[in-house]
Design a protein around this nucleic acid. Structure first.
Lengths: 344, 344
DNA sequence: GGAATTTATGAAAACGTTTTCATATAATTG
DNA sequence: CAATTATATGAAAACGTTTTCATAAATTCC
């Protein structure tokens, strides 16, 4: 009694009955099948609109084995880089009639595994994933590849996955140009606050860092290289350690902007002149870097470019239904760019 | 030939066959139905795991008329407030076994309407929506309410929707305490950069603003009240207009933080001392406000609280399957808080 | 003008579950 | 111990589409 009368959704059979046609014809008409008369199509479309008909995606998906839904697993939706990428992906896929189920792993590997199970149950047509920092074994994604579901990894990606598409920023180059920029602006004692080496991201950026250092025959101070979770607090702690000694760095490369901001705030508090005594460069071009004083030099990763590329390759492999297996063994690399501001 | 062999997903029938049981029993066992022997349940669960069985959500949903999927329509996922709310909702719903289909209207009313159609086709179990600034007619949401699908509006909400749950910040109070704070810190000539009055958000904040002004018997200068899209550029333009005259404001209340930042930057460029000559207060507690110099006073909206409340009421009405129609005609209000920083 | 082809439609099966109804067995009652 | 009730299972229908196969009608061909 609580509910008045719930309006029942009309089905294809209601249209069929109203027009004295078979459900098969209605289905074909709605899907613009070539073997249906124009007039019939128009009649069906008109009646569908009149009855407020809406296709039942579950019934349709069950029969046709297509959900028009794509799963996305991401560490956290509110991280700037990811938010931008997701926005682009969402808007892109929407144009092609695909829905996006967005899931957050909260950077927990267990959660990531569970999410693959859930998305498998949802029978997503494809999967997009930016993995956890701790994901070194990627076998929980195999289930998708095995039944022919395209998988695209971006940002944090497997190193030797042959069967999935891999889209990543040019992290080696990012590390290299960031460090080179510090050197070119006169730094001789360069520190590096980096993330855990379990992730390709920080492996590559670190390699780029070292390459630039070696190329200019500068020494590497082991005590000034940190591999840690890139939080505000950790960066502060690293700064404290480095600046309690006699010899202090004159340049700092951090693998994200949060760490750069923390470092800058530390310097501000301790009266360390930036960029006079210490030059700082971050990574990602988070909006905060352009707003803080002094504005922080950083590396742009072009999240919208990443998003666009993901949509492009995905739509492609969904259309051709050609599994990506054979073709895409080479990762797609999105270029990076130095954004010079006031901290260097 | 291109694809090796795609692995076929096992179904309930495969389990049934393996165990010499009927599919009905398998289904019941998997759903923890009370009328199944413990031993049988264990056997089924074990065999399901062994065969790598994953329920087909489409088949399940088609039959049971439950998708365990909830739709979310939001202007833009990358806006700070929404990103936070969504993160909380996502994590909350995940715990109860619900997926979230997130859609962006890009603040376009047409897109919003289209998205309701799509989510209707997906037969979502419930809908959460933060509407477009231009949404004054909410009838495209009626379809959900008519077939008993719970709808929760938050942030930008309909004014007189009797049948849906409404969760909103205390915008009147926000406008009131922001303005009062400016007055208390000595402002006499207060400007207000607000959003379009089509939205309850800005109606309420404006009302709060006026209430405070009247209460202190201050005059309202019509030329210092703006109702416009709250972009960086628009705020700059408003500042330009106000500061080209002889009489200039000594206090500014902006309805979002982007405008406050734009205003602060303008002041900085023109050599207007903040907070000496001009005090500024924003809205939302965007992370940028705490990082800019001087840090901007603003109003905290507690996005996680909003998200939690949404999940709570939603799970409740999904569980009871009692449509919200009768009970929830009163909007739920989330309190706001003044965050005092350096611009006042 | 009949055979072959194209075009338009329908009947019925299929997708993988859940659920109703029926039934067989086991446990409990008087 | 017969009668009732509780427990455990199966057969079959149902959910709303899409798709295969068959066929009727219209068109083209020689």
């Amino acid at each position: 009694m609580a509910n008045p009368k719930k309006v029942q959704q009309n089905t294809i059979l209601d249209i069929a009955e109203a027009l004295k046609l078979s459900p098969a014809t209605i289905s074909r008409a709605l899907n613009d099948h070539p073997h249906v008369k124009e007039k019939t199509k128009n009649d069906v479309l008109k009646m569908a609109a009149q009855l407020g008909y809406r296709r039942n995606n579950m019934a349709s998906g069950l029969r046709s084995n297509k959900t028009h839904t794509i799963g996305l697993i991401v560490p956290r939706i509110s991280m700037f880089f990811h938010a931008e990428v997701i926005t682009t992906i969402q808007n892109g896929l929407q144009k092609y009639g695909y829905n996006l189920i967005i899931c957050q792993s909260n950077d927990s590997l267990d959660m990531e595994k569970e999410l693959t199970e859930i998305l498998l149950s949802s029978r997503v047509d494809a999967l997009i994933a930016a993995c956890t920092l701790g994901t070194t074994d990627f076998s929980h994604f195999d289930k998708f590849l095995q039944n022919g579901t395209p998988v695209v990894f971006y940002d944090r990606v497997p190193l030797n996955e042959q069967k999935a598409t891999i889209i990543k920023g040019d992290d080696f180059r990012g590390g290299y140009i960031a460090t080179s920029h510090l050197i070119e602006t006169g730094c001789k004692k360069i520190a590096h606050i980096s993330g855990p080496l379990t992730s390709n991201l920080y492996q590559d950026r670190s390699a780029g860092f070292l390459k630039a250092i070696e190329q200019h025959k500068l020494p590497v101070n082991e005590n000034w290289v940190f591999h840690q979770e890139l939080t505000h607090a950790n960066a502060r702690e690293a700064m404290r350690k480095m600046f309690e000694g006699d010899v202090v760095p004159d340049g700092l490369f951090t693998d994200n902007d949060t760490s750069a901001i923390a470092a800058l705030e530390f310097a501000r508090e301790k009266g360390i002149d930036v960029p006079g005594e210490l030059k700082i460069i971050g990574y990602s071009n988070d909006p905060r870097t352009s707003i803080i004083t002094p504005a922080i030099t950083t590396i742009e990763q072009f999240p919208d470019e990443v998003g666009r590329k993901i949509v492009e390759t995905l739509i492609n492999s969904l259309k051709n239904n050609t599994n990506i297996i054979d073709e895409r063994t080479v990762p797609i690399t999105i270029p990076v760019q130095l954004i010079r501001r006031m901290t260097t």
